[in-house]
């Protein structure tokens, strides 16, 4: 019995007392309790990389900000998810993303279905104070079904992870580094001539208009990433 008891942790998130299982992340516990923490690279069903830094939270007693998606809970933890400091960084991170590549929402296939766009609205970003970088990037429409538009890519690597972890093909990866990083298929080959299985999972998990389905017109491109937890569940059962 003592073991089960020690497995349950109690903690405080935004002044709300919650309980959690040992090993659970702050994000999991927050979502179970309807406490909203913004995320972008995280997607339920994929491994966590802690890269977008939007889910950073403050933990009482520590000066460092920690990503809620990978930080596990401990007994007596006191988490703040929406301090002024965190909000300031979140807005800056979104600004950095908008200024990094060419996100032209009005003509984007994902307009109205884009997680980046929604987050900007959610976090109150009404303009970008940073200078736009205006990089020259390509659009690869060589595959019959789907297109990759690097202008809209935020390098969340969901496509890379879903292809490697769920589809098992690992056709996507990231090449280059720093500000010059881009997602590639195979040896930076055209998507159309790559070893892609055409399963379309990457398109469904892409949070922006970087990967989209050609068969849809205009900005009617809703994404359906919810298949992932189900898929994982079915696999575990086998």
């Amino acid at each position: 019995m003592s073991e089960t008891v020690s497995n349950v942790k109690t903690l405080v998130i935004d002044e709300q007392e919650v309980s959690a299982l040992a090993g659970q992340t702050i994000l999991d516990v927050a979502r179970e309790n309807d406490i909203y923490i913004p995320t972008l690279c995280h997607l339920e069903g994929l491994s966590n990389v802690g890269a977008c830094r939007l889910c950073l939270v403050e933990i009482k007693g520590g000066n460092k900000l920690l990503p809620a998606c990978v930080t596990t809970v401990f007994e007596g933890m006191e988490v703040s998810t929406h301090t002024e400091r965190l909000q300031k960084h979140r807005r800056m991170i979104l600004e950095l993303l908008f200024a990094e590549r060419n996100h032209i929402c009005s003509v984007c296939v994902a307009n109205g279905h884009c997680e980046l766009q929604a987050l900007a609205q959610d976090q109150g970003v009404t303009h970008i104070s940073l200078p736009y970088r205006n990089p020259e990037l390509t659009v690869d429409a060589s595959l019959a079904q789907f297109t990759v538009d690097h202008n809209r890519c935020i390098l969340c690597t969901r496509c890379v992870r879903v292809c490697a972890e769920i589809e098992g093909a690992h056709v996507w990866d990231v090449m280059g580094r720093g500000i010059n990083s881009i997602v590639i298929t195979d040896l930076h080959d055209n998507w159309g001539s790559s070893s892609c299985t055409r399963c379309g999972k990457c398109v469904q998990v892409c949070p922006t208009g970087a990967l989209f389905d050609k068969s849809k017109v205009g900005s009617d491109h809703p994404k359906y990433p919810d298949f992932l937890p189900y898929l994982n569940l079915m696999r575990e059962a086998q």
Binding site: F98, N102, I104, C105, S106, V107, T126, H127, I128, Y132, N134, P135, E136, L137
Partner: peptide, 19 residues
């Protein structure tokens, strides 16, 4: 008041910037 995306982000007119 910056009215609309062109005034705020450059929007469609700014699509020429990369080239």
């Amino acid at each position: 008041i910056a009215m609309g995306d062109c005034a705020i982000t450059g929007n469609v007119p700014s699509m020429r910037n990369p080239i």
